[in-house]
Amino acid sequence: MRKQLYWLSDEDWKQIEALLPRGRRGAHRVDDRRVISGIMHMLRSGARWRDCPPEYGPYTTIYNRFNRWSRQGIWLAMFKALTGSTGVIGTVAIDASHVKAHRSAAGGRGGSSEAIGRSRGGRTTKIHALTDAAGRPRVLMIAPGNLHDVMMAEELLSAIGPVARLLADKAYDTNRLRTFLAQHGIEAVIPSIARRKPMIPYDREAYRQRNLIERMFARLKDFRRIATRYDKLARNFLAGILLAAAITWWLN
């Protein structure tokens, strides 16, 4: 029996269709809705591209569209269009999550630039995220798994625009980040590491909301091609994350 397939709903497709490129030169594209549904199915299932169910069309069409639009930045543009960037966002949370890299992810032409790091846990990539007060991802980036969480914090915050308050765990308790937050008028809701003397007070009630970003990562990793990295190219792995996040959290 054929496993349950994923299909974009009429309402979801209505929102996505308006964001797709139009009027480009070249051969006429096959059914965009079917192809994007196929890509989402592959992200969920974690299967090899060549095992894409025939209901979506040739697997080469599904993969080539995913890869080409990743290279052209279309998935990133779609994510940004859906998340928006208007005004002060208010409270945001920051965190990172490890993803093991499958052996098929080895051999990318970019070498170390493909965001795979080696440590005692093996070869890994980290997904870095900022979420809003509702727990929805607003900024998503990837980096080698052996890079410390706090090293991506300023880049993430610079990408989101003005915010009022940042929730973060002890991994982000550094003088440099606290100085950066103070310079930008952002309240730091970060517990102090044990060796900091004296301890810096923080809003414990607000900090309780940080669990939303952990729940976001758990839900994002329901997509098997995100829970384990199979993509050689960093841009393709990130593109899958962006597409899954856009459709899961940002389509009404």
Rank of each mutant, 00 (worst) to 15 (best):
P162N: 11
T83F: 11
R65P: 00
F217P: 00
Q209V: 10
S97A: 15
L76A: 12
R44F: 07
S158K: 15
K232Y: 05
D203K: 10
A245V: 01
R123H: 15
A171I: 09
A133P: 08
I226M: 04
I193P: 00
A96F: 08
G108T: 02
A246R: 01
Y202N: 00
A239F: 10
L43I: 15
S70T: 15
T91D: 09
L177T: 05
R65D: 04
A18V: 12
Y230K: 10
P58K: 11
A143C: 08
Y59H: 15
V163C: 10
V92I: 11
L8K: 00
R138E: 06
A171P: 01
D12E: 15
M152T: 08
D31R: 11
M78F: 02
A96C: 13
I190W: 06
H98M: 13
Y202C: 00
T86H: 14
R34V: 08
R120P: 05
I213S: 01
A143Q: 10
D222K: 13
Q4E: 13
I142R: 01
T174Y: 03
K3W: 13
W250L: 06
Y202W: 11
L8Y: 04
H28C: 05
S45L: 08
H184W: 14
R24D: 09
K80N: 14
D149I: 05
F223A: 03
L82K: 11
R196S: 14
K126C: 04
I89G: 01
L177S: 04
